[in-house]
């Protein structure tokens, strides 16, 4: 029964990941690029590039999500795949939110342009991700050292 439950959980979370990392962003970006007559426009967007890397890293994130969420609780393999998934999430966010560039330029038609540089904000978010990676590495060590006790508790449930 445990295997079935884990599979179902894995599929549910993969579905959520596919929705939030692939379906919604792809739909949003496709709609955004097709709208005409906005009072401002993006200047440096490479549409094909963004959609490609969104899809590529979204697929990786969803695949690793399935492995992670279908693994037993507090298992070593869950810890390892959780760590890999955080790293993939970093790559995904880099290609998606920041498009590899931390300066966003909006053209205001007939007036000029407006530039927003969020490089400092990116550095702090990346620092937070580093802390998350440290936590995942700690989890792996914890699950490995205490694996007998964790297995006993899991068998009892």
């Amino acid at each position: 029964m445990g295997a079935v439950k884990n599979m179902v959980r894995g599929f549910i979370f993969t579905g959520v990941y596919v929705l939030f990392t692939l379906a919604i962003p792809l739909t949003l970006f496709t709609l955004l690029f097709s709208i005409e007559g906005l009072p401002f426009e993006w200047e440096q967007i490479d549409q094909h590039n963004i959609l490609f890397w969104l899809t590529a890293f979204g697929l990786l994130a969803s695949g690793f999500a399935f492995f992670k969420y279908s693994s037993p609780k507090q298992s070593i393999r869950k810890g390892i795949f959780a760590l890999i998934q955080v790293i993939i999430n970093c790559l995904y966010l880099w290609s998606y939110k920041f498009s590899g560039a931390s300066e966003i330029k909006f053209i205001i038609i007939d007036y000029g342009f407006f530039t927003l540089d969020i490089s400092q904000m990116i550095l702090i978010y990346m620092g937070v991700y580093f802390l998350t990676i440290v936590l995942k590495i700690y989890d792996i060590f914890d699950y490995t050292i205490n694996r007998e006790k964790i297995r006993e508790n899991r068998m009892k449930e």
Partner: peptide
């Protein structure tokens, strides 16, 4: 990326069925 996704899903299914973790 599509191949990696499929490999991950299939291997997860195989591994977690053989070793579900809730029984010996």
């Amino acid at each position: 990326y599509i191949v990696v996704f499929i490999v991950l899903v299939v291997s997860a299914i195989v591994v977690n069925i053989i070793w579900p973790g809730d029984r010996p």
